[in-house]
Design a protein around this nucleic acid. Structure first.
Length: 431
DNA sequence: GAATGTTTACGGCCCC
DNA sequence: GGGGCCGTAAACATTC
């Protein structure tokens, strides 16, 4: 049974439902059509996560369970929720909208067709569904740029991408980002440079081109606890980089940072300077403390050793002209996604993450509603795509939101719109 | 010249 | 109110 999430805001839904005739054969405008429409009414400032967010890439629909309950009604957005507080706050109003989702979902299941459950009405519902759908393709996803970059890198086979590839991934996955590119791409570049969780990997001589590869810092794998990609629960800071920064910023600043935490906050200037103390403010974050308090000191040491070895390999790469494949293998080896279950368990037991908010609902990286795993292709969603393709024979246009020229991530793009994110029960239509 | 990368600055929002 | 995360803008440097 194929289901689709309805994702239009209440305004659009009202408009659509009022103006739409179940028999109106105007369903050629699918997601892809919207994508190619630069005049889509999606404000570049759509950063406001109002209804537009909920109804867009944000898996707001999936926040409803099969009983039509919203996540809030399930207690999901209560204190301690993995949903960021900002999101939670900004979802407060949309959540009310979500209630209307439920009714629309009901409409989509039966009322739209006047209760008719015939196959024809199913098609009509599907068509109506796509009319709703089209209003959402350009709303801003709820994911931060750091999340998007992380998604892109983690989804790449070699766990590292060039800047342009990151751009492309994001644009492929989220049509919203096909507009105002200068703005968000600047933010992407800023995020890459500013955040220690992203590591620049120089190109090898056999891979000439512009720009370096970007990978994830081996220790940054736990930024998005339980796979929730909405917002990091803790900023990752590379102690070494931080120390270098401090040294550069204040020449008089002693390398001995025994009491540097407080000094940093007073010496630093600028954004990060006066506003952030990052991990080093937490006594648990010093390496010595980490080792002393960790229940499995050996494991932490091994991880540190692994990390240091990998960093050394980065350096050796420059000296020995390591092949791209070798380098990729190295990155893969140290990448959290490539870690063994033991190593991943170690990551989760890393004292640096002890202070992170813990997921109260038992979500994992694989089942978290905001997990990348729900955006990226799955066997199930691929099956859905196949079914969608089969629907061509009924006169439906392709549901692909992507230009035909885009192939590298086309399945991802498809999955984004066809994935379980949009296949939730309450806001779905059974076909 | 364009793309890429770095840095600074500022404001919004939320939690404590 | 302070701390922290994030988004955005902008200036500037570097690289192709």
């Amino acid at each position: 049974m194929l289901t689709q999430k309805l994702y239009s805001d209440s305004t659009t839904m009202a408009t659509s439902s009022n103006a739409m005739s179940p028999m109106t054969p105007t369903y050629s405008m699918n997601s892809m059509s919207c994508v190619s429409m630069p005049s889509m009414n999606c404000s570049p400032q759509g950063a406001s996560f109002g209804s537009s967010m909920l109804n867009s890439g944000m898996p707001g629909g999936m926040a409803m369970n099969g009983n039509g309950m919203t996540s809030s009604s399930m207690g999901y957005t209560t204190i301690g929720s993995p949903i960021s507080n900002r999101i939670r706050h900004e979802m407060a109003t949309p959540m009310a909208t979500m209630n209307s989702y439920g009714s629309v979902g009901t409409l989509g299941r039966g009322d739209l067709g006047g209760g008719d459950t015939s196959p024809n009405s199913a098609l009509q519902r599907a068509r109506a569904d796509k009319t709703y759908r089209r209003s959402y393709t350009h709303a801003k996803p709820p994911y931060s740029y750091i999340s998007l970059i992380t998604m892109a890198i983690q989804n790449s086979p070699q766990k590292m991408l060039t800047l342009s590839e990151i751009y492309q991934f994001i644009m492929d996955l989220f049509p919203f980002y096909r507009q105002n590119q200068q703005r968000w791409q600047n933010s992407i570049r800023h995020s890459l440079s500013f955040n220690d969780c992203f590591v620049k990997v120089p190109r090898t001589p056999d891979k000439p081109g512009k720009g370096s590869f970007w990978s994830l810092h081996p220790d940054s794998g736990n930024m998005f606890e339980n796979g929730c990609y909405l917002r990091r629960q803790k900023r990752f800071k590379d102690e070494k980089k931080e120390l270098i920064r401090q040294t550069h910023k204040s020449p008089s600043h002693s390398v001995d940072n025994s009491n540097s935490s407080e000094k940093k906050s007073s010496i630093q200037h600028g954004d990060d300077a006066h506003k952030t103390h990052h991990l080093d403010k937490n006594p648990e974050n010093t390496l010595g403390t980490m080792l002393s308090i960790h229940p499995s000191k050996l494991d932490v040491e091994q991880m540190n050793l692994l990390h240091s070895n990998d960093l050394n390999m980065h350096q050796q790469h420059h000296q020995q002209n390591m092949s791209h494949e070798e380098l990729s293998a190295m990155v893969n080896r140290c990448h959290p996604l490539s870690l063994s279950s033991d190593h991943q368990a170690m990551l989760h037991h890393n004292p640096m993450s002890h202070h992170l908010k813990q997921e109260p609902s038992g979500f994992t990286s694989s089942n978290h509603p905001f997990s990348i795993n729900r955006l990226l292709p799955t066997a199930e969603s691929k099956a859905d795509i196949k079914m969608y393709a089969d629907m061509h024979q009924y006169g439906y246009n392709t549901l692909s939101p992507l230009p035909s020229s885009v192939h590298s991530h086309s399945t991802i793009g498809n999955d984004y719109y066809n994935s379980p994110l949009y296949h939730t029960s309450a806001g779905t239509t059974s076909l």
